[in-house]
Design a protein around this nucleic acid. Sequence first.
RNA 1: CGGGGCGUAGCGCAGUCUGGCUUAGCGCGCAUGGUUCGGGUCCAUGAGGUCGGAGGUUCGAAUCCUCUCGCCCCGACCA
Length: 478
Amino acid sequence: MARNITPRKENYSQWYLDVIKAAGLADYAPVRGCMVIRPTGYAIWENVQAKFDAAFKKTGHVNAYFPLLIPDSFLRKEAEHVEGFAPECAMVTHAGGEELEEPFAVRPTSETVIGYMYSKWVQSWRDLPVLINQWCNVMRWEKRPRLFLRTSEFLWQEGHTAHETEQEAREETLRMLEVYRSIIESELAVPVIAGEKTAGERFPGAVDTYTCEAMMSDARALQAGTSHFLGQNFAHAFEIQYQDRNGELQYCWTTSWGVSTRLIGALIMTHSDDDGLIIPPRIAPVKAVILPISKSESVAENDILPKAKELSAKLDDELGGMYSQVDTDFHMRPGDRFFTHLQKGVPLRLELGEKDIASGTVRLVRRDTGEKLDVQADAVIPAVKNILADIQANMFARAKAFRDSNMHDAKSYDELKAIIAESGGFVRAYFGGTPEDEVRIREETGATPRCVLPGGDKGKCIITGNDNARLTIFAKAY
RNA sequence: CGGGGCGUAGCGCAGUCUGGCUUAGCGCGCAUGGUUCGGGUCCAUGAGGUCGGAGGUUCGAAUCCUCUCGCCCCGACCA
């Protein structure tokens, strides 16, 4: 049992921070609310990025870069947008030793600058659609930061598209929601529910907001990705207009969508255990670690290490895209070395000791289950491949089973209150109330509507009693 | 912004009420040596501190007084 990690049951928040620290993913920066993403954490982010980026390219998007500083006046052009973001904006008021005529906001999101640029670039229906994504950092001043989940500065991706018709823009919004759902589930092994946000939870300036909602291992919800149908709101604010096929001037329909380094928080809180981090193989920077083991340091280094290196090279070659690492910390005892990799979440450990060499086998140890398996040396490569695939599948299945076992139904508001108070988790209920009702529910229960389930399932609202309320998931959220 | 708490070694803390008995300690970590070694061995030695900062009281301040800076927790707020 780990001695540097607070047990999850004892103190969930502390456990989360301990896991991050033990795995060396991130550290606090000198500026409050900011974090340093350390090499191990950044390697995970690079892998996450690579998966999404490839999917964006496949759906026809291209990358570009827009500036960090946004004129204050831009944010003010869309009424709801400024109201939503003003409180968390960091403003640059001085530069070059002088006070600026107009302050700049450090971007909290880029709809406004991008809208401004699109208005210059779009003239004709032939210029549409515009499908641009950018990978960048953003800043939203947070009063209660938590590593990865809510930091003042974070890394993300924001896609911004402009379309000729409402239908096209709506399709784009849903297409990207589906891209998110599929990658988060297949690569990060985090099960999510993709649905619509209620009015009170909508992005400031959006007509409709969609979300991928995940359940963490304390049964609280985490928004893992959002996609917004912006209607013509930003097109009106920034005059993104084009001449249609009849020569008439029209406003574009726009969308935006994003995922952030918060996904790493989701990863940690979905899969890890009291021993530390567990990373799904498909995004693990090191998928398998090979440990030469011997009582004698010189035997380990001279006799076993070459075999370990050979095995590592073979794994990397034959399982293209694989990445294995050889542990050469011979001065440490095996137990210490095991723990190091355990806490870093490496999916698979290959032990190569004198006993194994004598018997012509390699010992494989799974991080997700702790299961040990002795495999014939010549069968190691296919075995590794199969086990990694199985770990990936098992991690997803396990997380999904946990979520499903914490899914409840409430027929009335009282029932919803009781479930949230007693067991927590996700609660399905018919809801058709106003943002004011949402506030009241939050104040009274601590839970918020996380997302409206897709499909036409409708019933009697637990608040208003009206029919035609949509089935909505409520939960306490991060 | 309101309420509470805390700043002493890399981390976690004791010492502060009752100033001197501490050369400012302890645990973890770190370094070196030995021992052990297939899920965190055990032992020895050692390095490491402007006690958050400034001013004051005193023969003497981590300890008392004044001011100041920073952080954490709860609340409020928050895609």
